[in-house]
């Protein structure tokens, strides 16, 4: 596995003594789509802030491209250039007078030439479909538009890894599909994606790697199939399995002789049901 970001035994506690991360070790593969799941308070948001050096762990090490990160100014600059963070609440992130200005904030901080900043802002506006909003004040946007603009602001910094904290939260189904399509597009363009999600159905469809956090510890890292199919285990850490897994177990309880592993997708479930049908 080609680890892009590697965490080894990372600990972090907040100033009031609340431990948020307790020995987290994980690998974010290059070019992957990693979903980070866990109940509220499991440490997802804290983990994300440590992933680009905004929070400094009290113990443990973080490597970016195999290089141990220190917290000097140069390192932090490099780090934030390579790992972009999209916050859950876009109102936290957006603060400039207009959409265009907000998107330019990151690139300006990087000290790029003005032409380069302009070019990147244009690119981000087009890639995220926010071009028609460019001169709008950020506080006048709808929630979904704000989400897109906050993604555009990080996109313009052209990070190797984009880390998104619950990008689908509070969006209606159409809004969620739009964001997922945008993420798919970013992924095709070569960006490594990491995102926190609550809906296991989305994880099943989207991720090629799942990391499960519980009480500040990684209790699973691996392929989605390995954990999403385990109903009991998911329920025990406060997560709900994808609905095909639930239906699979329900049908088995009801006496339908389904075989093999619980399916993660609707298509796989239908196929298993069709196969089991004649035997009944």
């Amino acid at each position: 596995m080609n680890g892009m970001l590697t965490l080894r035994d990372v600990h972090f506690a907040y100033a009031d003594g609340t431990p948020a991360l307790q020995g987290v070790s994980l690998d974010i593969p290059r070019g992957g789509k990693t979903a980070i799941v866990g109940a509220n308070g499991a440490g997802k948001s804290t983990l994300f802030l440590t992933l680009n050096g905004t929070l400094r762990p009290s113990q443990g090490e973080i490597k970016l491209d195999g290089r141990l990160m220190t917290y000097g100014r140069r390192d932090l600059e490099q780090w934030r250039r390579q790992v972009g963070l999209v916050f859950q609440d876009p109102d936290v992130q957006l603060f400039s007078a207009s959409v265009e200005q907000d998107i330019s904030f990151g690139p300006l901080n990087m000290g790029l030439t003005e032409d380069e900043v302009r070019r990147r802002v244009e690119e981000a506006l087009i890639a995220t479909g926010t071009e028609p909003l460019r001169n709008r004040p950020v506080h006048a946007l709808s929630y979904g538009q704000k989400k897109r603009v906050s993604i555009a602001g990080v996109y313009a910094m052209q990070p190797d890894v984009m880390v998104l904290d619950e990008p689908l939260a509070w969006l209606d189904p159409a809004g969620q599909q739009e964001i997922l399509a945008l993420l798919a597009q970013l992924h095709r363009a070569g960006t490594t994606l990491v995102m926190a999600v609550h809906q296991m159905d989305v994880v099943a469809d989207w991720a090629d790697m799942v990391i499960v956090l519980q009480a500040g510890q990684v209790i699973y890292q691996g392929a989605p199939q390995g954990v999403l199919a385990q109903q009991e285990r998911l329920l025990s850490v406060g997560l709900t399995p994808p609905w095909p897994v639930q239906v699979f177990h329900d049908l088995r309880l009801a006496g339908l002789p389904l075989e093999g592993e619980p399916p993660l997708t609707r298509a796989a479930l239908t196929e298993q049901i069709v196969r089991a049908w004649p035997k009944k």
Partner: peptide, 25 residues
Amino acid sequence: RADDLAVAMEARGYQGGEGRTAHHP
């Protein structure tokens, strides 16, 4: 909000005026 914004600005590489591109001359 102030606290969150400070973190978010830092996460986007803001370190004060030094080293920033001069914008809108």
